[in-house]
Design a protein around this nucleic acid. Sequence first.
DNA 1: TTCATGTGTAAACAATAACTTACAGGTGTA
DNA 2: TACACCTGTAAGTTATTGTTTACACATGAA
Lengths: 97, 97
Amino acid sequence: MAILAALSNPHRLRIIAALTSGGRNYVSQLSRELGISRPLLHLHLQKLAEAGLVTSQLELSHDGKALNFFEVTDFGFELTPSLIAEAAKSLTTNPDK
Amino acid sequence: MAILAALSNPHRLRIIAALTSGGRNYVSQLSRELGISRPLLHLHLQKLAEAGLVTSQLELSHDGKALNFFEVTDFGFELTPSLIAEAAKSLTTNPDK
DNA sequence: TTCATGTGTAAACAATAACTTACAGGTGTA
DNA sequence: TACACCTGTAAGTTATTGTTTACACATGAA
């Protein structure tokens, strides 16, 4: 559910695409490549991370800057009516929001 | 993309679940079973139909009422980083919204 | 005719999500 | 010190969704 919500946004799809094709990257660099503001990218990365679609690890560059690298987890989900029906059961009992 | 957006809503997941488990159903009846108002259900069904996840066909009941039956299409999608990366290409060239 | 059923949709409002701007802090180099 | 990078986040605004209420119309039965 959180995964579907995370993927229902053009920016976030492009973020995953960029990280998939170009490999891991840090926030500021990625924001330049995608042409979206850093705070906005930060927010989207946050949602993707909450959904477990990306992970981050803070690293120190050679010149001492702290860079937060993101990369996609190699997830795999299948979307079929029956699987959705199964997943939807957790909605009635567990009011997600 | 429209598919992902359509699935990123609790109501719509429950609609698919209900139609998958209980088979085809018409709007008013479904709204009673799910406990959501008919206009609201109508709107959600509309979005699901636009995404191609459900189809509808108008039928006449024995007593002459026009009933609009909905059923799920047996779709199947796989969600992986590379498939998303591929799908995201159509976003840059084709501004969906 | 009136009532109960079914259909659809427009309009107004409420709740979320998206986005920008602005701030606060860190390091290394000139 | 001042600048150029990097990080994060809070606040305010705009845009998008979701939701309700109310309308309009059609059919069969009482």
